[in-house]
Amino acid sequence: MTTTVAKDAMRKGDKTVIAEGTRMIPIYVMGKRYFVPETLTIQKAMEYAGYQFIRSCGCRGGICGACATVYRLEGDYKLYSGLACQTVVQPNMYLVQIPFFPANKVAYDIEKLPYDVTAIQTTYPETFRCVQCNACTKVCPMDLQVMDYMAAAIRGDIEAVAEMSRSCIMCGLCTSRCPAETNQYNMAELCRRLYGRYGQKKSQQVAKRVEEIKAGKYDPMIEELQSLPLEELKKRYEEREWEPVMSEGWEPKETKYL
């Protein structure tokens, strides 16, 4: 029994399986009504309705920001937003996708920027025009506190901007709503890079390993592996020492290849 279910399930690919008896509901794509199964995401519902995407579809997994969508529900003045690939349809939703929204992206040289508020002032001065209306936070499909990271930027707290914008997918919805014409997500990208470049310390261990490799330390070890007969190579592979999951304080016994 289980076996037939499984074999069948394997053939379904990404096609959403619509369960028996699923209710069909009306949605309005740019004002035009289609009936779609109520279990689908907006993305799959539009495909069900007959659309074939060129724009507004990238990762299909909630991380690329291609499928930003805004919608209203009948009889409700509120404006909602979501990612089409992640948001399930609702009856009588009026939606439009925003595949692109122009935003100012400044070209800069990361090596020449200081690690303080002047970096933001010289690149994205419009940031300081923010009137704290919160429209960006409300529209962000990733539920980021966009207005708060703008405030952090104005304070010059670059690390806070980096942390608060960590899961920004650069969909552009915040920019589309901003009365002060700021370019929140490009500014945040700048801050993340500044934080990575100057705020986080460089790894000494990585630098040391790069030097060791340049000096040729590991060449003989790899050549040794390359010259081994297959059986011997397999033996080494099987016998390699395994660092435990909770490895605090663990040291490998074999040290000659370190």
């Binding site: 890079r193 990575g196 470049r197 100057y198 310390k201 790069v210």
Partner: peptide, 21 residues
Amino acid sequence: PLIIQWLESLGMNFDKTPDGE
């Protein structure tokens, strides 16, 4: 390691300890 160092220099954020490791 060279690539990790390069990404670091471009400002990629890594999960690090406070001393940068």
